[in-house]
């Protein structure tokens, strides 16, 4: 029996989503094959890395943070500082307009709160092409309407349930959001704290998108892992271990199909960047990346 490489090509293609505006914008997704599978399909955009900045931390305008290709603002905790919605929206807009890179805005995660907060943020940042979320089944209508009006992209979040993920995407498209304006957040858990569930959810979504050509799952995937990784005791007790904790979680999700990773540590950011640039170089058959 002669060897024949078992190449697989797929009928589906992941949507290419543009975030940010004008020259500073970035494209994510667009692949016709599984992560790193250059030998059998196209992966036009490498996974994109975002660095997380909380409102508190952005005040010191860390140099490192602003060299990231994407900034992710986490609004969680802004309520605790006693700020009202208008204030938060204005502050967000100020940062968005000053960083010169595309921005992801993650709300509080509380559906009721985000239903009010995120449309205000969308309005304050009109035209900036934010990636805004999390949009959940409880509050998708209001946030979708604001994103349509002010030209942003959405993060659709459903916890580790591929069927519910698909359902939310269907509901969003019914609201008039086109499929190239949605990014899927299947909820990402840290290494040792349920990572395998997120890993398999991402693999299933990516396979449904590519092999089954399921239009309602062909959106790029985002893995918001910085906060998840750095809250575990294994990261807190040892910085070097924390970087690897976050780095391994990130790489696993890249291999499972994540198109955007939100990281907290600049060290992890550099490490993953190094892996992506070094290990995809000199690869003879590749298209893209």
């Amino acid at each position: 029996m002669a060897y024949e490489a078992a190449i697989e090509t797929y009928s589906g293609k992941v949507e290419e989503v543009t975030i940010g505006k004008g020259e500073d914008s970035l494209r994510v997704g667009g692949e016709t094959t599984l992560p790193f599978h250059f030998f059998e399909g196209r992966l036009p955009n490498p996974p994109k890395l975002a660095l997380e900045v909380s409102h508190q931390r952005q005040l010191d305008r860390s140099e490192e943070a602003f060299k990231a290709e994407i900034i992710s603002l986490q609004l969680l905790g802004t309520d605790a500082e006693g700020k009202d919605i208008e204030e938060i929206a204005a502050m967000t807009a100020e940062i968005v307009r000053s960083v010169g890179v595309p921005v992801i805005v993650y709300g509080t995660g509380e559906p009721e709160r985000d239903r009010e907060l995120l449309p205000k943020v969308a309005e304050a940042c009109a035209g900036e092409g934010l990636l805004l979320g999390p949009v959940k089944k409880e509050n998708y209508r209001e946030i979708a309407a604001a994103c349509l009006k002010y030209d942003h992209r959405l993060i659709a979040q459903t916890p580790l349930d591929v069927n519910a993920t698909k359902q939310l995407n269907i509901m969003l498209t019914k609201e008039g959001i086109s499929t190239d304006r949605i990014v899927i957040d299947p909820l990402s858990s840290a290494l040792g704290y349920g990572m395998e569930y997120s890993y398999s959810a991402m693999e299933r979504i990516k396979l449904a998108a590519l092999a089954h050509n399921d239009k309602m799952l062909q959106m790029p995937i985002i893995a918001n892992i910085g906060g998840e990784c750095w809250k575990v005791k294994e990261a807190k007790e040892d910085d070097a271990q924390g970087v690897l904790w976050e780095g391994i979680t990130a790489l696993c999700f890249i291999l499972a199909g994540a198109n955007i990773l939100i990281l907290r540590s600049p060290h992890t950011y550099k490490l993953i960047q190094q892996i992506l640039s070094k290990h995809l170089k000199n690869y003879d058959n590749r298209e893209g990346y």
């Binding site: 069927n163 698909k166 269907i170 239009k215």
Partner: peptide, 12 residues
Amino acid sequence: GKVLYSHSWLEL
């Protein structure tokens, strides 16, 4: 199993 289940399967 040809199409992934979602509540809106009849509408797609």
